[in-house]
Amino acid sequence: MPHPTEAPDLADRVRADGVSALVEAAEEIWTGRRNNPDAPVAGPRPFEDAFPTFYQFSNSPQR
């Protein structure tokens, strides 16, 4: 019994300039972690490191 879900315009919303800036800022943070092993977070690693019970939310290689 599928029923429509609100706001199905994600693909449009992520095209906004502000989102581009957000993604770039985040990628810079992740690169910074990778390059600084002494930082509290040593790099962009799979979320399973901290949260193996994160269900399907994973950035590990997809199977």
Binding site: A11, V23, A26, F51, F54, Q56, F57, S58
Partner: peptide
């Protein structure tokens, strides 16, 4: 801090911008 939920959302937004959204989930 690694902020699990927010960072995953941003990763997905980036993938969607690159038309790679279908590669995110297992």
């Amino acid at each position: 801090i690694e902020l699990r939920d927010v960072e995953f959302a941003i990763r997905y937004a980036g993938a969607l911008r690159r038309d790679e959204a279908d590669t995110v989930l297992p």
